[in-house]
C-alpha cells in the first residue's frame, strides 16, 4: 500500500510517516504544492493525505487535479480544525474523508484503513484477529465462528483496536474516536472505561483471549499476550 503525505510541516509529516510505516505502508512526503502536483500526477497511490494550506498553492487544487485524472486514490484532507469551508469544499470536490488537526495518529491510521477497505473491497472484507473476525459487510462480530452481539460503541471500539493492533492507544484518542469532536468539550474521559470493560467482558465470555491490555499511565493496547 502506497501513501502520499502532502504536508508542509516536516515534523508532523515525519510522525505520520513513521506511524504508518510501522503498519507496513509505503510512505512518501510532498512538502510543497509543486511537489505534491508532481508526485500525485506521476505515481499511483492508494491513499493521499492532503493538507490544505501549502507553500505555493492550495491542497484543494491538488485534489481537483487528481479528480480530473480520475485517480483511484483515496483522499483524506488533513487540515486545521474548524476550517469548515475547507471541509465542505473538500468533500464536494471529491475527497473521501476529512480529519481536523491536531489529530491522533491512531485515528488517522483507522481512517486510512477504513477508506482503503471501502475503496478496494467495496466494504466486503473480513478482519481477522486470531479467533475474532469482523464481517464488515454485515457489521457482525464472530468469536470462534459464533456471532457476538456488541453495542455500537463496543463495535466501533473493537474496530479501532483492530485497526491499531499492537499499538498503544491513548485514552484521549479512544474518547475522540467514540465521541467525535464532542470529546473536546468533555472534562473526563472516564466514559471509555465502561465501554472497554464491557467489550473485554463480552469477548472473554465468548471464548476469546483477553487481548485488551491496559498500558500503565498511557492507555490501552490490543495485542496477543
Amino acid at each position: 500500500m502506497k501513501i502520499l503525505i502532502i504536508e508542509d510541516e516536516p515534523a508532523l509529516a515525519s510522525s505520520i510517516e513513521q506511524y504508518l510505516q510501522q503498519d507496513g505502508f509505503l510512505c512518501e512526503v510532498a512538502p510543497t504544492f509543486d511537489e505534491a502536483m508532481l508526485k500525485s500526477g506521476a505515481y499511483e497511490y492508494d491513499c493521499i493525505l492532503v493538507d490544505i494550506t501549502l507553500p505555493g498553492g492550495s491542497g484543494l487544487d491538488v485534489i481537483q487535479a487528481l479528480k480530473k485524472e480520475h485517480s483511484k486514490a483515496g483522499i483524506i484532507i488533513i487540515s486545521a480544525r474548524h476550517s469548515l469551508d475547507d471541509k465542505i469544499k473538500g468533500l464536494e470536490i471529491g475527497s473521501d474523508d476529512y480529519l481536523a488537526k491536531p489529530f491522533h495518529l491512531s485515528e488517522l491510521n483507522a481512517r486510512i484503513k477504513a477508506l482503503l477497505r471501502r475503496k478496494q473491497f467495496n466494504g466486503e472484507q473480513h478482519i481477522e484477529f486470531h479467533e475474532i473476525s469482523v464481517l464488515m459487510d454485515k457489521q457482525e462480530v464472530q468469536v470462534n465462528q459464533h456471532p457476538l452481539t456488541l453495542t455500537r460503541s463496543e463495535y466501533r471500539l473493537l474496530l479501532y483496536f483492530l485497526a491499531n493492533r499492537n499499538r498503544v492507544l491513548s485514552k484521549e484518542s479512544i474518547a475522540e474516536h467514540l465521541a467525535g469532536d464532542q470529546a473536546d468539550m468533555l472534562d473526563s474521559l472516564d466514559f471509555i472505561y465502561s465501554h472497554i470493560k464491557n467489550l473485554r467482558k463480552k469477548l472473554v465470555n465468548a471464548g476469546a483471549e483477553d487481548y485488551i491490555q491496559a498500558v500503565y499511565g498511557m492507555g490501552y493496547k490490543f495485542s496477543s499476550p
Binding site: E9, A11, L12, P102, L105, S106, Y216
Partner: peptide, 28 residues
Amino acid sequence: QTPLAIIRSKIELLMQQGGRNENERQAI
C-alpha cells in the same frame, strides 16, 4: 494548532516504543 499537532503526534510515537521505566511512562 500546528506545534500542538506536532507535539501530540510525537508523543503518540513515543508511546509506541516499549521498554521504558515507570518514570518515563508517567512523564509521557
